[in-house]
Design a protein around this nucleic acid. Structure first.
Lengths: 209, 209
DNA sequence: GTCTATAAATAGATAGAC
DNA sequence: GTCTATCTATTTATAGAC
């Protein structure tokens, strides 16, 4: 929204957003500390309040950015001239890619889910609906083409998002459990996990499960 | 651990644990407030500190309780004289049941995952290893019986736990999205979701995916 | 736009009476 | 075991100089 684009000194706003994303991801909304964010952004607290109205407003902006990007990406996938099964694979992939580009995404989203979307405002809610709407369109198109059977978009989405966020967010915890564990290696390759999630989603749609 | 069991007035400790579980689930560790916990337990803050050393100690006790119960339940499943596929179904079921008996479980666990197991102490870590160990035993037994193929316990566990916790924890958020949504009903029956998770887990083990 | 200094509120923890 | 009152530290947010 209308603001100086890359003015020499003033990418400070961008720096605040980056630092805040990391802080919120690491400590949650309540645990995040404005002073720490300022230090990480190489600024001071007052500067954050110059750019953002409040801690809550700053947090909401980060949430919005995440889901706006995902919504746009999956909308493109839904509209692309490709086969239904390929759309499902890409749906998984673009979400995984969006999350990879924003390491703060999985932790923040997991926490947001945990607190019932407490900080999810109307704009973000619309993006979420947009994401589900795109998936619904992919399913419907696939059914029309006789390739998919009916599966609730919400269930399919949860079966994709949940393991994906878990996998991406649990890396530290898996390392912690690993020490002295007897149940084989806990490390999973990112690609293997994504491929598995894609296979599971497709198997449901194609009636193989 | 050696303490008065149900002494007339003194189930206050139990009340604190119950109130704290709800508070931690709703607001996270950092967001939880000791005064609110005290009020919900119909006590005062000082009474909490009489029973528990600190906020952290109180939280850890709740974490431990959750995973101790799950570990015991899945260990029983792994040792039961039943078919491998039935063990997998029960594995899913006992975890779902343990979570249902503790509504605070899914949110707390999601947050704990999000922060890399920050508050997971050695005891809880052992319980977690025990859970994975039991699942590994179920898989191994199934392979020996020629029924299962090799699947990493961690991957299978994540594929079970993640959608389950998501489903259980997202109820409020799903309601929030629901308003004015166009992608069909977002409400999913608990039983349908559990059945689906069981099918997916088994399909992986039986090589159907 | 950026800073220092500080106001104002909140929350974890404890002292001490009963 | 249970309470009230309070200490102390932390933290969000703002005033005001440059």
């Amino acid at each position: 929204m209308a603001r100086p684009k890359a003015s020499a000194a003033a990418d400070s706003r961008r720096r605040v957003l980056t630092a805040a994303a990391a802080e919120f991801a690491g400590r949650g909304y309540a645990g995040a500390n404005m002073d720490r964010i300022a230090r990480a952004a190489r600024l001071n607290k007052a500067m954050i309040y110059y750019h953002f109205k409040s801690k809550a407003a700053l947090y909401r902006e980060i949430l919005r950015d995440m889901f706006e990007a995902v919504r746009d990406d999956v909308a493109q996938v839904a509209a692309a001239p490709i086969e239904p099964d390929e759309k499902i694979r890409r749906y998984v992939e673009v979400i995984a890619t969006a999350a990879a580009a924003r390491p703060h995404f999985p932790p923040i989203w997991l926490r947001e889910v945990a607190e019932g979307g407490e900080h999810v405002d109307a704009a973000t809610l619309d993006y979420l609906r947009g994401v589900l709407g795109s998936l619904d369109r992919i399913i419907t198109d696939g059914r029309r083409a006789g390739r998919f059977q009916a599966v609730p978009a919400m269930m399919l989405h949860a079966g994709i998002i949940a393991p994906l966020m878990f996998f991406l967010a649990t890396a530290p915890l898996r390392r912690k459990i690993q020490r002295h564990v007897t149940a084989g290696p806990l490390s999973l390759s990112r690609d293997v996990v994504i491929a598995q999630i894609q296979r599971v989603a497709l198997a449901q749609l194609e009636g193989k499960i």
